[in-house]
Nucleic acid binder design. Sequence first.
DNA 1: TATAAATAGGATAAAATTATCCGAAATAAA
DNA 2: TTTATTTCGGATAATTTTATCCTATTTATA
Lengths: 144, 144
Amino acid sequence: MFSKACEYGIKASIFIAINSYEGKRVSPKEIAKEINSPQAFTAKILQALVRHKVINSVKGAYGGFEINKNELKYINLSQIVKAIDGDNIYNGCGLGLDKCDENHPCPVHEKFITVRDELKHMLENTSLEELALDIKSGASFLKA
Amino acid sequence: MFSKACEYGIKASIFIAINSYEGKRVSPKEIAKEINSPQAFTAKILQALVRHKVINSVKGAYGGFEINKNELKYINLSQIVKAIDGDNIYNGCGLGLDKCDENHPCPVHEKFITVRDELKHMLENTSLEELALDIKSGASFLKA
DNA sequence: TATAAATAGGATAAAATTATCCGAAATAAA
DNA sequence: TTTATTTCGGATAATTTTATCCTATTTATA
Ligand code: FES
Ligand code: FES
């Protein structure tokens, strides 16, 4: 469904969100430990999220990654997925035709876009804030 | 969503289905041409589908790939996807946790399984027969 | 039985994804 | 201003996925 990079990106963002609530910045090292991911690879993904302005970075001593506390409720999974995996999951054909086109549909088009649209709706309506709160309350987990 | 191999496998199966209606066997060469896929790679995927008994192969002169005409309505996308991509798309965690577990859910578990179950339902309730008929009637297409 | 036609399958190769390493640049504090 | 800390970014490596090639095996027909 999502690439490994995207999975790490989502989990990392949630962990950053939790800490940003408490005004704490976190490092790739802490993040990788908490989400059980390869550290250097995770750092690359964080860079991409910074470039796409999903998260913010502060260089130098006492720096780290953070998210503006007030924006937490407006950042959704859709933004993270698009930043890392692009929007092929939104627009691409389920059977790999060059483009998903109502006027030249692949055999699964009608059925596929129903599922795809539900996925899209889910990603667009799930905020980092609610996911972070679930982790804090112990309702969900970032690693095994 | 699906691997390239799986996309080819689905399209190939549909093309085989169309021809099996008319009692014709088809070769990897014809299939690859019709679905616009690399021939040798497609042949490998066909072998896998044969091993999983989704399609049937006949070796030697006048041989080729076919599907029992009477089974067409009972073969669904689910069988093809499982044969090629395995059942990770059915059981796997959306964020890559070792297993998707109601009692140890990842942050997106609840929302993810809703979409996943709809995808599952779609795959299980879409038969090769209906997809083949749409191609025959010109309602859908196997390549650009 | 010999031949031609076709799938099966192993060995590689190419490309994409995932992962690691290291030095450069930035920054806060001593 | 120096130092310690931390992200940035380029180079490289490992792994997985995608793709190709060649030979063996099977089978219908002449
Ligand atoms: S054309 Fe294939 S999903 Fe729309
Ligand atoms: S635990 Fe992640 S989807 Fe179920």
